[in-house]
Design a protein around this nucleic acid. Structure first.
Lengths: 154, 154
DNA sequence: CCCTATTCGTCAGTATGCTTATTATCCGCA
DNA sequence: TGCGGATAATAAGCATACTGACGAATAGGG
């Protein structure tokens, strides 16, 4: 019996691996080509048009450098527009293109429905318990991660 | 309120991000330099001296290609020895070096004790519930992942 | 013994996800 | 106005983590 088979870290990684795989399979099957982080970014831009990359990073809890690369690829796919901010010439403000808006609308339903596939082994009650425990643990551990969630309410 | 804030996938990713970060912090603090997958590989080789890379991959649920790179780095650090198998000249059999054995002994306790830090927001009862739910979900979703756990009992 | 299917490790390529460092810019303060 | 510290984005580099493809070798059936 391996050490790791008793470790939460191992199962968290396995769940992540399964989640990413389910996401990719479903995308391919529906004829789309977005990764989880690309969907998260588009989702956040959709809710916050004109957001800059650093604020976006905090909103979806990713590293700024990572998001720079993600936005590169979304821009290249023609889903996101990136312009220099008029208020701060260091910052780039982000908007969805028409294609990006369409893509998000189509993906939204798919991504929502794929969530339960990730937890296919759990009953609905267990899924709820599981989600609540993750919320609690992720909230408590927020500062421990390299890219904490940063939500500034103005 | 963002879409993703209601999605299990998001929280699974956050938990993974937190787990990896806690692991890295603790390693650095203790003066070690191993990643989670490197520890998993060493742990599995320790329990199964002479295992080949493909079987190792199945035992810790990683992709063959990924493990190839991981073993490269462990070999380069002098923790693992890689030899061509006498029974199958395609395969490489793996052994821990003396340094690898020492490293694993030192790391074992540290990695065990860091697990509860990952779930610091949960009570002991919640941690148990959480681990059991993850075991159940990861087991059920095993085939869905790209690199399923493959444990062959001979 | 040969043919075919399978398997092992690896290569090339893509995308995360992070670290440290750098440049450009902004902001507060004197 | 000018200066120092902070911040936005990026560059360079490293380590996962995967896909598809490939050569080498093995295993099974006829």
């Amino acid at each position: 019996m391996l050490e790791i088979y008793n470790m939460p870290g191992h199962y968290i990684r396995r769940m992540h691996q399964i989640a990413v795989s389910v996401f990719a399979d479903r995308m391919a099957r529906e004829g789309h080509d977005l990764t989880p982080v690309q969907f998260a970014a588009i989702s956040a831009i959709s809710c916050n048009p004109g957001i800059d990359q650093a604020t976006l990073s905090g909103l979806i809890a990713y590293d700024r450098v990572t998001i720079g690369g993600v936005i590169d690829r979304l821009e290249h796919k023609g889903l996101v527009r990136r312009d220099v901010s008029k208020r701060d010439r260091r910052a780039k403000v982000l908007h969805l293109t028409d294609a990006g808006i369409r893509e998000f609308e189509e993906m939204k339903t798919i991504v929502r429905s794929l969530q339960s596939d990730i937890l296919v082994g759990l009953t609905p009650e267990e899924q709820t318990t599981f989600l609540n425990l993750m919320r609690k643990a992720a909230d408590a551990g927020n500062k421990l991660s390299r890219a904490p969630l940063r939500i500034n309410r103005d």
